[in-house]
């Protein structure tokens, strides 16, 4: 079973000096927080806010290469969680075949947002991440921490 997820926003995690992409399912019942680096957070934020930078950023380049050969991003899927590392796949349609490419979730999400492709995860991944612990952790975050980062 797979569940469609929406990117709800980005948080700054001051304790780890990292960023967290928050994915939620459509009913807002399940949440998936994914820790990403600064440049990946910036790439996701540009897409969320529909900012077109003067020069193509790395994921704009990725999309531009795919567009150039008429390859289409079908979806991004967060497929697994092992030792606190999330795994993802990007599904492409090219010629008359589907290709599935191993990726970090941050790259998959940054590309999916630019291609307006859906983002999915599996029930198993949602089960694996411990939401109770997460919510306690989120309660400790100050509202000022939300959305704070340099592009």
């Amino acid at each position: 079973m797979i569940t469609q997820m929406n990117v709800r926003g980005l948080l700054f995690d001051p304790y780890n000096n990292a960023y967290i992409v928050i994915l939620r399912d459509e009913e807002n019942a399940d949440m998936l927080p994914i820790w990403v680096g600064k440049s990946e957070a910036s790439a996701i934020s540009f897409a969320l806010e529909s900012i077109a930078p003067p020069r193509p950023m790395t994921h704009d380049l990725m999309k531009s290469i795919l567009d150039n050969v008429d390859a289409k991003v079908l979806s991004a899927v967060v497929t697994d969680l092992k030792d606190n590392t999330y795994f993802a796949k990007i599904h492409l349609w090219y010629g008359d075949s589907e290709y599935s490419i191993d990726s970090r979730p941050s790259d998959a999400i940054a590309l999916a947002l630019r291609a307006e492709a859906p983002i999915f995860t599996t029930e198993e991944v949602l089960r694996k991440q411990n939401s109770e612990e997460l919510e306690r952790w989120l309660e400790n975050l100050k509202p000022e921490d939300f959305g704070k980062f340099e592009a």
């Binding site: 790395t58 380049l61 990725m62 290469i65 795919l66 050969v69 390859a71 990007i90 492409l92 090219y94 290709y99 490419i101 191993d102 990726s103 970090r104 790259d107």
Partner: peptide, 9 residues
């Protein structure tokens, strides 16, 4: 990832 995509395609 870009290299992997171009290889795949």
């Amino acid at each position: 990832l870009i290299t992997s995509m171009t290889d795949h395609l």
